[in-house]
Each structure stands twice: as structure tokens, then as C-alpha cells.
Amino acid sequence: MRASSLLSECLAVLSKDLTAELRSRVALNAVGLFGLTTLIAVAYQIGPYRIQEQDRPFLLAALLWIILFFAATSGLSRTFVKEEDAHTAKTLRLAARPLAVFGGKLLFNLILLAALFVFIVPLYCALMGYAVAGVPGLVAVLAAGVCGLAGTSTLVAAIIARASGSNTLFAILSVPLVLPLLVMLIQGTRAAAGAPDFAVVLPALRGIVSLTGVTVVTSIFLFPVVWHD
């Protein structure tokens, strides 16, 4: 009988991943550099003045999520791929309960994405002259986006970890799952930028939360099979 709870085992996996990441900084560098490079390229070519005023709410919201999504893609798959590459996956498989691994990796991806968003979003707003009328609404959409992207990418990362060419596979498998999420995130961001009222983001938020909930619950049931077989 185990003396610990599932939560403490999740936190152990999270703490191990955070310590390892802070020492190697592989995922942080990948995500951060990809995000920054894309942002600077977009800002340099488009900037705050090259978009027609009527197109700004649509294009700026879409560009923000394109940058965030692709930057996230470059690092999120690493949580499981690294375990397989370093031959620690089998050790972890024999030691930890599958749900503890899933929970720990999900929390790690949440933190990694949150760090990316905190770094990129203010820079994007400054470089692209993106004026946001409803900051609380945007924060809520971004938080929901972090949860949605992390939830989706954690399971996909576990699925692709044992395959060769896993980064390509990650993008291919992620897109159909993430596409509806991205559409709702862009709509929510556009709504938050255009009006200070929090209610305008609620329809998009409901959709994002529902989709994230379904993805995470499905992942909880699927993950033990994916992890052990």
C-alpha cells in the first residue's frame, strides 16, 4: 500500500521535471527562442502600422495565437520524448503510477506555457501596438488557452514519444485536436481586445473550457494504456 497520495506523486514528477529543466533549459530555450524569433519576424515585416484598421482585431488575434501555438509545439512534446531518448521512461514506468506521470507532465506543460505566454504576450502587445480593451477577458482567454493547449499536447506527446520523427508526428497529431481550440481562442482574444465587458468572451470561454475538459478527461482514461503499451 502506498503511503503517498496521487497528488504528492504528481508533484514529485513536476518537481523533478522543473529541476531538470531549470538545469538543462532545453525546452525553455526551444520555446522561448522560437517564440521570440517568430514575434520579431512578424513585428519587423508587419509591425503596428501595416494592417488596415478594420482588419486589425482579426489579424492581430490570429497572429498572436499562431506565434504562441508554434512556439509551444516546439517544446511541449519534449516532456515525454526526453524520457524516451534518455532511457528514463522505463525507470519511470516501473516506479510511478500512470496518472501521477500524466498529472506531473500536464502541470509541467502548464507552467512552461504560462511562462511562454507571460514572456510573449506583453512583448507582442508592445511591438504590434495591440491595444486590449478588456484585459481581464484576455487574461481569462489566455489562461484557458494554456490549459487547453497543455491538456491536448500532453497526451499527444505521450503517444508520439516512442515513434521516430516524433516532432513531425506531434504537429500532425496535434493539429486536428488543437484547430477547434485555436479558432475559439482567436475569437475570444478578438472579443476581449474589442470590448472591456467580460461577458463578450464568455461564449468563447465556454467552448474552450468544454473542449479542454473533454480532452483532459479522455486523456486520464487513455493515458495508462498509452503509457504502458
Binding site: A3, S4, A20, K90, T91, A96
Partner: peptide, 23 residues
């Protein structure tokens, strides 16, 4: 074909495995 975490020390590795094993 099993490994321990290279970024962690021996003690940190054992502490981690003890925690996830619930001992």
C-alpha cells in the same frame, strides 16, 4: 536500457523515486 535522471544528483534521483513509489 534503464537510466536515472542525468540532471539530478544520485540523492535527488533516489528522493524522487522514493516519492513516486510512495515510500
Amino acid at each position: 536500457d534503464m537510466a536515472v535522471y542525468e540532471e539530478l544528483s544520485a540523492l535527488e534521483n533516489l528522493r524522487f523515486f522514493a516519492r513516486v513509489r510512495g515510500v
